[in-house]
């Protein structure tokens, strides 16, 4: 019976190796400078992914700028001001549900909230959808990390006459900083691969666009479109884009883990 468990672990690891192997094998052959310097091509032509990469970066940055402060503040309330209040229990429960809610639902929500009233798809709607995905991740890690800060530190701060918000800002945040940063990095890792919430918010764009009020290309949506197309050049670009996303996401999560990992060792 225990042998079966070893087999199970073997299958799990082999599966991971198979996926990464296929990804590197198929994606690497398409990596060239053109991928990063040229626009997405029309069917049957060679080209790159520049506008898609640009769109992904822009929307991710806006989402992080919008979502992080809200998430950190909410996490702060739950761990500091309202640690024992009823509101915290409810918010924690709802936040956990938001954390694993299907992202396509968030896409539909933002469609009803922004795209329909505005009458057109836009990059800003895509960024808002991503921001809604950032918030629960940041809330969760901020609360967890602030809860780990020893109360003796806070009491020491209060004892020298610092008001609550100074204690939070200069003691609790500082002690929990690496953990909070980890949460933000994990949130970035999560949204950089999200496709479903962008499908009907930011839509897609074949051309270069930096207009936030217009549809914007993104790497995941471009991969989706190109992979399902019958054109070989597009499929190759999809694999290459998939490799870029995976490396980014894996890099971010390994970096994020190493931040907290060091803390645990200490």
């Amino acid at each position: 019976m225990m042998t079966l468990c070893v087999v199970a672990a073997g299958i799990g690891l082999a599966w991971l190796a198979l996926i990464l192997g296929a990804l590197v094998y198929k994606g690497l052959s398409g990596v060239s400078l053109a991928v990063f310097t040229e626009m997405t091509p029309p069917p049957g032509d060679a080209g790159g992914l520049l506008n898609a990469i640009y769109g992904s970066v822009v929307m991710t940055i806006i989402a992080v700028i919008v979502g992080t402060p809200i998430g950190v503040l909410a996490g702060t309330y739950m761990a500091e001001y309202g640690r024992f209040s009823k509101l915290t229990t409810i918010v924690r429960f709802i936040n956990d549900i938001l954390l694993s809610a299907p992202s396509i639902i968030i896409g539909l929500f933002v469609y009803e909230l922004m795209v329909r009233p505005m009458g057109h798809f836009s990059a800003i709607a895509g960024a808002v959808a991503l921001a809604i995905l950032v918030i629960p991740v940041v809330v969760r890690t901020t609360e967890d990390m602030l809860n780990l800060v020893p109360n003796a530190l806070r009491e020491a701060g209060t004892a020298i006459g610092a008001p609550r918000w100074v204690v939070i800002k200069s003691v609790a945040y500082r002690a929990a900083l690496s953990g909070i940063v980890t949460g933000i990095l994990l949130a970035i890792a999560r949204i950089s691969g999200e496709t479903a919430p962008l499908l009907f918010t930011a839509l897609n764009n074949q051309f270069w666009s930096s207009n936030l009020n217009a549809p914007m290309a993104s790497l995941p949506v471009t991969i989706f479109q190109f992979a399902l197309s019958p054109y070989e050049e597009w499929q190759q670009l999809a694999w290459t884009g998939a490799l870029i996303i995976t490396l980014t996401v894996l890099g971010l999560s390994i970096f994020a883990r190493s931040l907290t990992g060091r803390r645990e060792d200490r």
């Binding site: 799990g12 690891l13 599966w15 991971l16 996926i19 296929a22 990804l23 890792a189 999560r190 950089s192 691969g193 999200e194 496709t195 479903a196 995941p220 991969i223 989706f224 992979a227 999809a238 694999w239 998939a242 996303i245 995976t246 996401v249 894996l250 999560s253 390994i254």
Partner: peptide
């Protein structure tokens, strides 16, 4: 195993 969780779903799709 946890890294498997971080891989975006579109990668699983294309694979």
């Amino acid at each position: 195993v946890e890294l498997l969780a971080g891989i975006p779903s579109i990668i699983y799709g294309i694979w």
